[in-house]
Design a protein around this nucleic acid. Structure first.
Lengths: 99, 99
DNA sequence: TTGTTATTTAGCAAATAACCGAAATACGTG
DNA sequence: CACGTATTTCGGTTATTTGCTAAATAACAA
């Protein structure tokens, strides 16, 4: 979980995750959103991938980055576990909508 | 929010937060839970305090550390905002129990 | 004031992180 | 094969982080 929070700790990486909310995006299109050199973005991709927050799929010459929802869910659960002591009533309820 | 996730990225700091789940604890008692020098722990306290995740209160010779729940809640909200795009159905439901 | 306990600050070494430009790799096309 | 496009890896610089010991500060008691 350290890798996950570490990945979330950089504003550029959080912005990358937001770009992936509505579907997979290729590395070049992501890089175009930032005033940073491509190798720098590639490094950020590696951090996100190491944390498991994104997955990749080669699509011809480009590489698609996709959000890994299950790891995002685990991060929320880990965050909640820091405040819930397990004994007695839970203070929070966090559920995926069934539809 | 970078400061918050950065603070959460270190396992010792997450463990410190867990020690504070059931109420305020003084610096010495927290330090006793780790095999680290006290100045090292003091540095971790500073990171948590800078992030706003804990507050301090001097109580005689000791200093009490207390969890700042509102910042924890903001962290959860920030995490959710990375996956919710605002248009259409929300995928998640996250509510505080009323009781 | 002197001493004792609790905690932080200062100073230092080693490791890691963030950025860049240049070079390398992977793929598809002619 | 050779070329163009997309992306990553390499090598380097600078800044930050984590840990330590030793010294400084804060509060209290005698």
């Amino acid at each position: 979980m350290s890798d996950v929070f570490n990945a979330l700790a950089h504003p550029v990486r959080r912005e990358i995750l937001k770009l992936l909310r509505d579907g997979a995006v290729n590395a070049g299109d992501i890089a175009a959103h930032f005033d940073l050199a491509k190798p720098t973005l590639s490094g950020h991709f590696t951090v996100l991938k190491t944390a498991g927050l994104v997955t990749t799929e080669r699509r011809g010459t480009t590489i698609l980055y996709r959000l890994n929802m299950s790891v995002m869910e685990e991060a929320v659960a880990a965050l909640l576990s820091l405040t819930e002591n397990g004994e007695g009533e839970k203070k929070w309820k966090f559920v995926r909508r069934s539809s």
